[in-house]
């Protein structure tokens, strides 16, 4: 009995530690964003201080950060949505049909995520310049599809494979077409997987830096680009940087928290069958 309650205490302690470690750096960022420069540069660092909204006032004084958040939102939502629309039928085919070269095709999808953006940035830049797409949302959306789609295909294929085949066979006996089966059975039942892949897609495109640095200029600078722009090496306004960081991290964190209950169910990663 004693060991049982010991175990319980240990369990609780462990969970608390997970919570504390996971949240601490972000807590530090948020609390730093309310510090004055003097408090920020205090050595050793201060834990209790009089909070100031000055950093936020500065951040919102120019349109840059707000419009960056809006740009990131547009790019992340559309690229994720497109990737899901394109990726789920493909995942369905990979999960349900037999055909030659299937595993190679699956691997080809995945391998699109392996390519270093440094090699592709210049060709894409030249192409975008030629098509007049530089500094538009469209070019970022299209480029981001290339690394979100593999994730969608991967996670959804695994998720669809975990759906019992009997359901499909029953539907087929009632005369359902293949598209019906996909639309009426697989999509609803695969929702956890789709949600997880959408979360990851959203996070990845929200956070992408290298392509955005090269392909954007004035109008569609995304959040990470703006975050790094304060790091000019010339001045380090830590309060402003941390406030910007908070503003940028907040929307994606809220989004992730909202859908986090799907997180565990959807990440089967092939663990079924």
């Amino acid at each position: 009995m004693a060991s049982r309650s010991n175990g319980r205490i240990l369990h609780g302690f462990g969970l608390l530690a997970v919570f504390a470690v996971a949240i601490f750096p972000v807590y530090w960022m948020v609390s730093s964003s309310f510090k004055t420069q003097t408090d920020l540069l205090a050595s050793p660092p201060v834990w209790l201080f009089t909070p100031t909204l000055g950093n936020y006032a500065e951040v919102f004084a120019d349109q840059k950060v707000t419009s960056a958040v809006v740009n990131s939102l547009i790019v992340a939502v559309f690229s994720t949505a497109l990737a899901v629309v394109l990726g789920t039928p493909a995942a369905f085919a990979l999960a349900r049909y037999d055909f030659r070269g299937k595993s190679d095709l699956w691997f080809w999808f995945i391998s699109n995520r392996f390519i270093s953006p440094i090699a592709l940035a210049l060709p894409i830049y030249i192409l975008a310049q030629g098509l007049g797409l530089l500094d538009t949302h469209l070019v970022l959306i299209l480029v981001y599809i290339t690394f979100i789609l593999p994730i969608v295909v991967w996670i959804c294929t695994d998720q669809f494979r975990s759906i019992p085949k009997e359901l499909e066979e029953a539907a087929r006996l009632e005369g359902a077409s293949q598209f019906d089966i996909f639309w009426r059975i697989y999509l609803p039942l695969g929702l956890p997987g789709i949600a997880v892949s959408a979360i990851f897609g959203f996070i990845f495109s929200w956070n992408e830096l290298l392509y955005a640095l090269v392909l954007t200029r004035r109008d569609v600078q995304t959040a990470p680009v703006v975050a790094t722009s304060f790091m000019s090496g010339y001045e380090l306004p830590w309060g402003k940087i941390m406030a910007t960081g908070t503003v940028i991290v907040l929307p994606v964190t809220i989004f992730a928290l909202l859908v986090s209950r799907h997180m565990v169910r959807g990440l089967t990663m092939g663990a079924t069958k």
């Binding site: 997970v18 996070i203 928290l257």
Partner: peptide
């Protein structure tokens, strides 16, 4: 609580 907080590091912008 712990499970939900796990999402936070994942979602934090790399540059940040």
């Amino acid at each position: 609580l712990a499970r939900v907080t796990l999402v936070i590091p994942l979602a934090t912008t790399y540059a940040v």
